[in-house]
Amino acid sequence: MSQTANLRIAAIALTALLSACSALKDSDEGNTGFFQCKSPRPEMCTREYRPVCGHIDTRIESKVRCVTEPCPSGKHQTFGNSCSACANPAVMGYEEGSCESYGK
């Protein structure tokens, strides 16, 4: 095989690899608002910083429920990216951007 053919194959493989990486984002790309975490939950995430505001179900997060006073069933927390937010089993979903940007 010639060197030119090897370079073409390498270029095609690199293009396929890069497009596969960009396809890992949620299928809701282009939508704004709330993104629901999908199953299976991620076990490893990149350290890319694209902050999201995670919506946490406090009933899942804490094993103990208060009985004497009303307890909020949810809270918000900023995560470094959507993968790290959805890796937390108590997170129901997220909005892009930090919680502070939403006033939460």
Rank of each mutant, 00 (worst) to 15 (best):
N31V: 04
R47L: 08
G74L: 09
P72M: 12
E48H: 12
S82M: 05
H55M: 13
C83E: 04
F79H: 05
R65A: 13
K63G: 11
E61N: 07
T46D: 11
V52G: 01
T58P: 07
V91R: 00
R50N: 11
P42E: 10
N88Y: 03
H76V: 00
P72G: 13
R59V: 14
Q77Y: 07
S73R: 11
N31L: 14
V52H: 04
C83Y: 01
N81K: 03
C86L: 05
E48Y: 06
I56K: 07
N31S: 15
T78E: 10
P72T: 12
C71A: 10
A87P: 03
Q36L: 11
R50V: 09
R59W: 09
T78I: 02
E48I: 05
G33L: 03
K38D: 09
C37L: 03
M92L: 11
S62P: 03
G33I: 01
N31F: 12
E96A: 08
D57W: 02
G80H: 12
V64A: 14
P89Y: 01
K75Y: 00
Q77R: 12
F79S: 01
G74H: 14
I60Q: 13
K63P: 04
C86T: 02
P51Q: 06
T78G: 06
F35Q: 10
C83K: 00
V67L: 02
K75R: 10
G74Q: 13
P42Q: 04
P89I: 12
Q77K: 14
R59G: 13
A87M: 14
A85F: 01
N81Q: 08
Y94P: 01
E96Y: 09
C45W: 01
C83W: 02
R59L: 14
G54E: 02
S62M: 12
P40A: 11
P70K: 11
C66R: 11
T68C: 09
E48P: 00
T32Y: 11
T58I: 08
G30L: 03
A87D: 01
A85C: 14
C71D: 04
V67H: 04
S73F: 06
C83A: 07
C86D: 02
A87V: 06
H76T: 01
I60C: 03
G54V: 09
P70I: 09
Y49K: 10
C86H: 03
V64R: 14
Q77W: 07
E69Q: 11
Y94Q: 03
H55P: 00
P51V: 03
G93D: 00
R59K: 15
C45G: 06
R47V: 05
F35C: 07
Y49A: 12
S73K: 11
D57H: 04
V91W: 00
